[in-house]
């Protein structure tokens, strides 16, 4: 799908924020798919590259707030990794804006909603 966007969220904070979002009545843009991982710490270069190569326009990662990772520092490692990948991408001439990670507390449904929409706007998925 040319027009698609992938949200990878963790089973803790990301999931809770997503559920809060839907319970508040906010809906995802239709081109957005979701994928759950136990912890964002599993995300690595290979995974993101594979996904981007498959034609996904953007990947948005929603993890737990820093200092609140069930696995101590999975989210911080993921943030660092994604920062590095973004840099690698821009060095290779691809814009780093296609990947983004943010962290959320369990009640931040509205913030998640606007973050996803901003991101969708940035990568051009309506």
């Amino acid at each position: 799908m040319e027009e698609s966007l992938l949200i990878i969220y963790c089973s803790e904070g990301g999931r809770k924020a997503l559920q809060k979002m839907s319970s508040e009545g906010f809906r995802l843009p239709s081109g957005v798919c979701t994928f759950e991982l136990p912890c964002t710490g599993r995300i690595n270069d290979v995974m993101l590259m594979e996904t981007l190569q498959n034609g996904v326009r953007g990947i948005f990662v929603a993890g737990c707030r820093e200092e609140n990772c069930k696995y101590l520092d999975g989210n911080k490692r993921a943030l660092r990794r994604i920062k590095r990948i973004k840099k690698l991408l821009s060095d290779a001439g691809i814009e780093g804006k296609h990947i983004e990670m943010q962290t959320f507390g369990p009640d931040e449904g509205k913030r998640l909603y606007s973050a996803i929409n901003d991101f969708a706007g940035k990568v051009g998925v309506s």
Partner: peptide, 26 residues
């Protein structure tokens, strides 16, 4: 605890999580 950090960072891709292997994820 199955967090997957090791699998994400192993440079040789030698680590696969049970029931959440890289291949299956991709």
């Amino acid at each position: 605890q199955g967090c997957g950090s090791c699998a994400a960072e192993c440079p040789a891709e030698a680590i696969q999580l049970r029931n959440l292997t890289g291949e299956s994820l991709y």
